[in-house]
Design a protein around this nucleic acid. Structure first.
Lengths: 236, 236
DNA sequence: GCCGGCGCTTGATGTAAATCAAGGCGCACC
DNA sequence: GGTGCGCCTTGATTTACATCAAGCGCCGGC
């Protein structure tokens, strides 16, 4: 799993900890350890209690539900610089999701005690932590909105636009952050439907697809496409 | 909208603030105001920025999405002692939902500045705030799980069991916390489907329904019913 | 008491997406 | 250069739920 990492350095790079002093970082570092995880490995199962949370240094982690019938639903795909597990850590309740590496990954495991110490010492840090959870909450609400109010095509478009980032006009190239069946699950679709939706958008001339690479021909008209959905047959 | 309320007293009763000192409460009280809202009134629209959050003293508030096509999807039904809007306040981004009174209601509007002051002064309060947001997050993830992995019947059963509270065995009486079409929307169902599901459960002898009052005949077998779902025709 | 409206139920029909079932296509490995 | 194997696509069929369309019962007003 590669060479060990300078934990302090890695911590200081995380958005959450950007504004901590050197001394605070090193205190946090005392409670954090490096975790190497090779592709496919499970970090924790659904039902686990956490007394640390995780930050991704490199690689990619998926958070997902598993149903007794063996179905699986991806809730979130977490990449470098992002973190997960805070809420479960604070709550001291079993996690509803499991975490699995999509690629060989390096994580930091940051102990609760260190975080609590940082909160005690620095109320600005506490606020940043609150803001972080709020962002998470906001995202989740957006997901709920997507699942319950938007069609499959709308969800795919929304996802592409989100990947595209800033609403520039003109064309943008995007690389899907994971294999299509993972993306499909993230969007609450089967791989088959994702494929068909992509095909349709492609036929309509709005995007072109080549493996994991998608180029959005015109961001504006893609984002306006929602309005014309009624006029489209399901497949053609 | 009734007589004014002792704001300090009301604040002290909220779970979030239980452990604050008298002096802290009165400082918070300085930044909070009472809001009376009659049934059907909208507290804030989707898109609003909040610089306070709200706690329900009496009555009931619904948080919901509205889609351009006029559909509406209830995200949450908030009752006395509960609060909402924290995440939007911390984030300083427009709210994704709107808030509307389902009954004549009394709320407290608690200003951001007061909360920040409390966080600065008392790190235990900051932790409680973090725990509060974590609970919210956990609930939302559970919703996502329900929407994406469970059938309509399973969602209804889950909801009933949640209302029933502790997993006692034997029978329990429940009163639905709102009209059926609100509940249906909360569960991502149409009123028609909710009605049919309730009817089926009723015919199977698991519950009996009389208006808003539902008695779960046997909590255990209701919670085990999920397993036998495959054997049931959709309606009969 | 009767009337009107609203919330709920019930039935018939429609439909978006899932599921089932084959292929094709790239890619690593022998 | 094949050969095998995931990953993706494509088509046919099924299905859970929504939608559309009546009725029904209950409650409040006159």
């Amino acid at each position: 799993m590669g060479k060990p990492i300078d934990i302090g350095r890695a911590l200081a790079h995380l958005p959450l900890f950007q504004q901590l002093r050197e001394s605070e970082i090193s205190q946090l570092a005392a409670g954090t350890s490096e975790v190497g995880l090779s592709k496919g490995r499970i970090l924790f199962q659904k039902g686990t209690l956490l007394d640390s949370f995780y930050a991704v240094v490199s690689g990619q982690i998926k958070l997902a539900f598993s149903s007794p019938q063996g179905n699986e639903k991806v809730v979130s795909i977490v990449g470098p610089g992002q973190s997960f597990g805070e809420a479960v850590m604070f709550l001291e309740k079993p996690s509803l999701v499991f975490a699995q590496a999509l690629e060989d990954s390096h994580l930091l495991s940051i102990a609760k005690r260190g975080i609590f110490a940082a909160i005690d010492r620095d109320s600005a840090f506490a606020r940043r932590m609150l803001a972080g959870l709020s962002v998470r909450l906001h995202g989740l609400i957006q997901d709920v909105e997507n699942y319950s109010l938007h069609s499959s095509t709308e969800r795919v478009i929304g996802f592409l636009l989100q990947l595209a980032g800033a609403p520039a006009n003109g064309s943008i190239d995007i690389e899907l952050p994971a294999s299509k069946h993972i993306i499909a699950s993230r969007l609450n679709l089967t791989p088959e439907t994702l494929s068909r939706v992509l095909h349709n958008l492609s036929e309509s001339g709005l995007i072109s697809v080549k493996g994991k690479c998608i180029t959005v021909v015109d961001v504006i008209s893609l984002s306006q496409f929602n309005g014309m959905l009624y006029s489209l047959p399901y497949s053609s």
